[in-house]
Design a protein around this nucleic acid. Structure first.
Lengths: 197, 197
DNA sequence: CATGGTTTTGGATATCCGTACTAAACCTGT
DNA sequence: ACAGGTTTAGTACGGATATCCAAAACCATG
C-alpha cells in the first residue's frame, strides 16, 4: 500500500545507512550498526530490503537523486557556465570538515567497491557520471565542444586528487589552497586561455 | 632464534596478505583468506602476528621498505631531477592493469583506513610521506626551493586523481592520456616556465 | 466492527570471524 | 642422542555476522 509513514521509515533507513557507509565504510558497517543508528528493528529493515547490498543500492540511488537535483538547481540558479563551474569547485568546501575526516563520499565508496563488489561499484560509478555529464555540458557551452568531456574528466580527477590528499593528511589548508588553484584554472579556461591544457 | 626458514615463512605471510589487502580491501579480507592464500596454518600465523591488525602493520612496513629502496634506486640511476620526476610519472604505468582494476594501492588503503582505523591510517600515510619527501627534494633541486613541498603535494594529488578516475571508469586510456599531460607539466616546470603554477 | 493486507517486532539460526590453546615436530648446540 | 628453545599444526571457542521467521499490531476499507 505504501503509506506515507512507511515511506518515511524506509527513507530513515536509507539516510542512516548512507551516513554510516560514508563514515565507516561499507564492509566495516554491520547490520547491527544500522539497526542501532536507525532505531528500526532488524526484522523491519528486512521488510524493506532483502539484503545489506540492497540497502547500499538504495543509498546510492538516494545519492544519485540528490546530486541530480543539486545539479539541476545549479543549472537554474547560475546563468553562465563559468559561474556554474565555480559553484562546482566550491563544492569541495561545502563539505570541508567531512571531506577531511572521511574523504570524498563518491571516491571512497568507489574505491572500496571497485575491489571486489563489481555490481555495486558499477552502480556507484553513476555518481561520477552524473557530475561528468553536467561538467561536459558546461565546458561545451564555454566553447570547448570537442574537448568538453576530456576537460570534465580532468576537473573530476583534480577534485579527487585534492580530496584524497586532504583526507590522507587531515589538512584542510591543503584543501583551500588547491581549491583556489583549481578555480583559477577554470578562470583561465573561461578567458579562452588554453595554454595550460 | 629467527632462523632463515622462519624468516621466509613470515615474509610469505606478509606478501600474501599484502596482496589480498590490495585486491580485496582490508576489512573484506578474512583471516581464513590469508590462511588459504599462504598455505600457512592458522596457528602458525598467530605465532608471527598477534592480531590481524599486526599483519597489516607488517604489510605497510613491507611496502615502506620497498618504496624506500625504489626511490633510492631512482636517485642513483638518474642524474637530473627532471629524469627522476619522469620516472615517478612513469610509475603510473608500471602497474597499469592493477591500477585500473584495484586502484592505487596507497590511495585505496588510506581511504579505507582513514574512516575508522586511525592508528593504521597514520601508519599508511607514511607511504605518501615517503614519496612526498623525495619529490620535494627533486623540486628543490630544480630550483623551486620555496615551493618544492607544495609542488610535491600537487604532483601526488594529480597522480591520485588520475588513479581514482582510471579505476572508477576501468579506463586505461584515460590513464595514458593524463599521464602524458602530467609529464608535459613537469617538462614545463623544468624549463622554468611557472606560468601554470 | 470485521476483514485482509501492510507494517512492526524481536527473537532464532546457522555461519563465519578473529583469536587462544595445546601438542607435536623441528632445530641447534652439546 | 639429549635438552632447550623455536616453529608448525590443527582444533576449539566465544562472539559477531547476515539473514530468516512467525506472530503481533496496525489500519484502511467493506
Amino acid at each position: 500500500m505504501a503509506t506515507r509513514k512507511s515511506e518515511r521509515t524506509r527513507q530513515r533507513i536509507v539516510e542512516s545507512a548512507n551516513r554510516l557507509f560514508y563514515h565507516q565504510g561499507y564492509h566495516n558497517t554491520s547490520f547491527t550498526d544500522v539497526v542501532r543508528a536507525t532505531g528500526v528493528p532488524r526484522g523491519n529493515i528486512y521488510y524493506y530490503f532483502k539484503t545489506k547490498d540492497d540497502i547500499l543500492h538504495a543509498a546510492i540511488d538516494y545519492r544519485l537523486e540528490r546530486i541530480r537535483s543539486m545539479l539541476e538547481g545549479w543549472t537554474d540558479s547560475y546563468r553562465t557556465p563559468v559561474e556554474r563551474l565555480h559553484r562546482f569547485v566550491a563544492l569541495l568546501d561545502d563539505t570541508g570538515e567531512a571531506l577531511t575526516q572521511y574523504g570524498c563520499p563518491m571516491g571512497s565508496l568507489n574505491a572500496e567497491l571497485g575491489k571486489a563488489d563489481l555490481a555495486l561499484q558499477e552502480h556507484a560509478a553513476q555518481l561520477f557520471k552524473l557530475f561528468e555529464e553536467w561538467l561536459t555540458d558546461q565546458f561545451a557551452e564555454l566553447g570547448y565542444a570537442g574537448r568538453a568531456h576530456e576537460l570534465a574528466l580532468r576537473v573530476m580527477a583534480v577534485g579527487q586528487g585534492i580530496s584524497m590528499m586532504t583526507h590522507v593528511h587531515h589538512d584542510p589548508a591543503l584543501l583551500q589552497r588547491e581549491r583556489q588553484r583549481l578555480k583559477r584554472w577554470v578562470d583561465q579556461l573561461a578567458e579562452g586561455d588554453d595554454s595550460c591544457l
